[in-house]
């Protein structure tokens, strides 16, 4: 009897201990938010909403506005999405609909390996391979053929929004395509069998599967976007680091993550540090929102097909 009691107490103690740690993981997200709000109080108070809409970034005058960085992050991430999305969906279709089993595993693995390469190595490759290639081969051509468009006006620096967009695209393809593959694979086989039995071609059955997985694919896209928005090193190394808003993809820019990476260690005044922490807070909020929405979509979608 006594021993029984002991084991029940043991179970309780063990369960509560592990629960405490689980709670810590959960609380960590809130702790991070709290610390950053506290750390950016100075700039939140002083600049208010103006922080988001002004373009001056002047450490000498201690005046800070984050618009150029917000613009840079948006522009580079959207550019990355435009390049990566069609390719990722293509990869996902290949892996879930077309590839034979013996080919699916190794290709998935290669794509996932791409996600394991550290951002700094992408940046290194960006500086020494991608940027010179853009500067010498791609950008002069773009300027020659499309130079009349504001999008492609300017000087071929190599460093700039285009380089950042391409590097980001390479980095988010593995994420979007592997989640999209999971989404497509979660859709019951019967959907495809029904379509094929009615005489549909493989592509027509794939179209039906894509329509079924629409919301899940949106979730995958948002997760990729979340990654692109927060990506730091690779972008910092190729975007050119100039806090200007320009319509041209060839011009250098700056992103929220890259300004923090570049200037945080050297921030001299309290207001300077506080402003950079506020940028981190914005970045945190944006990625959390993107992630929450995306995870909810992917979860509800895979759940729906698991229960039916």
């Amino acid at each position: 009897m006594n021993k029984m009691k002991l084991s029940i107490t043991g179970d309780k103690v063990f369960k509560n201990t592990t629960m405490l740690f689980a709670f810590f993981v959960f609380a960590l997200v809130f702790l991070m938010a709290y610390e950053m709000v506290r750390g950016s109080e100075l700039s939140l108070r002083h600049f208010g909403w103006k922080f988001l809409t002004t373009t001056t970034w002047d450490p000498v005058a201690d005046e800070y506005g984050a618009l150029p960085f917000i613009f840079g992050t948006l522009a580079s991430s959207l550019l990355a999405l435009v390049i990566a999305l069609p390719l990722s969906i293509g990869v996902a279709i290949f892996l879930s609909e077309l590839a034979p089993r013996w080919l699916e595993r190794p290709v998935s693995f290669l794509v996932e390996l791409l996600a394991a390469i550290p951002s700094i190595v992408y940046g290194l490759w960006g500086i020494f391979v991608l940027v010179p290639w853009l500067r010498n081969s791609v950008e002069p051509g773009l300027i020659k053929s499309f130079g009349y468009l504001p999008l492609f006006k300017g000087v071929p620096y190599g460093f700039g929004m285009l380089a950042a967009g391409i590097i980001l695209a390479i980095m988010i393809i593995p994420i979007i395509s592997s989640i999209s593959r999971d989404v497509l694979q979660a859709i019951p086989k019967t959907q495809r069998e029904a379509a094929l039995a009615l005489g549909a071609t493989k592509w027509e059955s794939t179209k039906i599967v894509l329509a079924d997985g629409k919301s899940g694919l949106l979730g995958a896209t948002l997760l990729g976007l979340g990654r692109a928005v927060g990506e730091t090193m690779a972008v910092t190394m190729v975007i050119g680091n100039r806090s200007e808003i320009s319509a041209s993809l060839l011009d250098p820019g700056h992103s929220m993550a890259s300004v923090i990476a570049n200037e945080f260690a050297e921030a001299t005044t309290d207001m300077y540090t506080s402003s950079l922490i506020e940028i981190a807070l914005i970045l945190f909020a944006v990625t959390i929102i993107l992630n929450v929405i995306a995870r909810l979509i992917v979860w509800s979608m895979t759940k729906k097909f698991k229960t039916t």
């Binding site: 959960f26 950053m36 923090i260 945190f284």
Partner: peptide, 16 residues
Amino acid sequence: FTDVLSGVPSIVVGVV
């Protein structure tokens, strides 16, 4: 929240 935490940019974690 663990999944959400994995989406927080590493630079933000550095700031924290």
